[in-house]
């Protein structure tokens, strides 16, 4: 039985690469677009939320980002990874919104997580709020670097491509961001500010 299951698992086709999906999308395949949406919408919306502090703004930016991919699909050149391209577009859209001053960056409303409320829950939410506010208070580029590498799990090479900086510059942004966070969060954890 177990051997049979293993055989079945081995017969499963390997998931299509993003490049293969983009090749299908160029031909107008809506199924390929749906698969790319499933794979990358959370990263784009999550990063946009980290940047803007607003769920509604994050959703709008994610929609605009994917519509740009859809509309420009025939011109797609496989020079960049799809995820890197999407996050770069989302980052630019965030910066555009900052320039138009449409965004308040320290809203960060509580996100529903389905856990029961209790005294510990109240304390947890307080810590969440303080952390969110500390992240939101970082300069845009430090927040973007942290969002890409820490929260969205991009490699240093990918994150540097998204932000259009060298890897040394990315590391500098990350180190300065984390240093600021250690200082600003020392009220939550007294030993955090120590070097």
């Amino acid at each position: 039985m177990a051997v049979g299951n293993l055989a079945q698992i081995h017969k499963l086709p390997a998931p299509e690469t993003d490049d293969a999906l983009m090749a299908r999308l160029k031909l107008g395949d809506g199924g390929a677009f749906a698969e790319l949406l499933d794979r990358h919408t959370s990263a784009v919306a999550g990063f946009s939320y980290r940047m803007t502090g607003s769920a509604a703004e994050a959703d709008d930016i994610a929609q605009e980002t994917f519509l740009r991919l859809w509309r420009g699909r025939e011109r797609w050149e496989p020079r960049a990874q799809v995820r890197t391209w999407l996050l770069r577009v989302a980052h630019n859209l965030c910066i555009d919104r900052f320039r138009r001053r449409e965004v308040v960056t320290n809203e960060f409303p509580d996100l529903p997580d389905g856990r029961p409320s209790a005294a510990a829950e109240v304390q947890r939410r307080q810590v969440e709020r303080i952390v969110n506010e500390a992240v939101a208070a970082l300069p845009d580029r430090q927040r973007a670097a942290l969002g890409l590498v820490y929260y969205e799990g991009l490699s240093n090479i990918e994150a540097a491509q998204v932000l259009d900086v060298s890897i040394d510059a990315l590391e500098s942004l990350l180190a300065r961001g984390r240093r600021s966070l250690r200082q600003n969060l020392s009220t939550v954890h007294p030993h955090l500010g120590e070097e």
Binding site: A34, L37, A45, D59, A62, Q63, L67, V131, L192
Partner: peptide
């Protein structure tokens, strides 16, 4: 502490909205 900050994830409604818009 950074892990305490919740991560925003795309809802199925958002994915459906983007598909419809496309």
């Amino acid at each position: 502490l950074l892990d305490a900050a919740p991560r925003y994830r795309a809802s199925p409604a958002l994915i459906a909205r983007i598909r419809a818009a496309a």
